[in-house]
Amino acid sequence: MGLILYKWLLPAFFAFHPFYVSVTEIEHVKAKNEVQVSCRIFADDLENVLKKESKLPLDIIHPANKAQMDSLIAGYISKHLVVNVDGKVVKLSYLGYKIEEEAAWCFLVAQNVTPFKQVKVKDDILYSEHPNQINMIHVIRDGVRKSNKLDNPKAAVSVSF
C-alpha cells in the first residue's frame, strides 16, 4: 500500500510544483519611431511582490483603486526593467496592464527611438521573490526576433542586430 501511494503522490507533487517565469517583449516599431514593451508576469506573483513592497492589501484582478495599482506596477517595473539602446537608457512610459487568465500583461512605450544596432536589457523582475525565477527576453527589430533566457541571478543581456 505504501509503495502504491508513493507512486501516486510523486507524480502529483511534480504536477503541482510551481514554476516562475516572466516574458518581456521589446519591439521597435519603425513607422512610429518607438519601442513597445510588454511584460507577461504571473498575476499572483506580481500582486505578492507589490503587497510586500507597499505593505498594502491589494487585489490586482479587482483593484479597489486602479490608479494606485497602476502606480505601484509602474514603480516596480521601472526599478526592475531597464532598456538601453545604442548606449543610452530609454525612458519607458507605463501605459497600463490587463489581466489575461493567470497573467498580468504590463505595457510600456519609449518614443523617439530610431532603429537600433544594440539593445542591453536589465531584467530582475521577481528575482527577490523566487530563486528559480526565469525571465525570457525577446527583442524584435525589422521583423527579426532574438530571444534570451535569464536565470536568476543573471539579470542582463545584450542583443545586437
Rank of each mutant, 00 (worst) to 15 (best):
E100L: 13
E34A: 03
L56A: 15
V85I: 15
I77A: 00
P63S: 02
V82T: 13
I26N: 14
D142P: 00
Q36M: 03
M136H: 05
S54T: 11
V49R: 07
P63A: 07
V23R: 02
D70T: 00
H130G: 02
A156K: 04
N33T: 15
V159C: 09
K122Q: 10
L108M: 15
K55H: 14
R40H: 10
I41N: 01
K55V: 07
L10R: 11
K32H: 14
P153L: 01
D142G: 05
H28P: 03
V121S: 14
Q118H: 08
N135A: 04
D45M: 11
G75K: 10
M1I: 04
V37F: 00
S54I: 09
L9P: 08
V35A: 01
P115C: 06
H17P: 04
Y94C: 13
L58Y: 03
I99N: 06
N148L: 12
K91M: 05
E27V: 11
I4F: 09
I26M: 14
D124K: 09
G75R: 07
L9K: 07
E47G: 04
F19D: 12
A156H: 03
A31F: 00
R145G: 07
A64K: 03
H130R: 01
S147G: 15
R145I: 12
A67Q: 03
Q118R: 14
D44M: 03
D45N: 13
V85W: 11
Y94W: 11
P11V: 02
A155D: 13
S93L: 15
S71H: 10
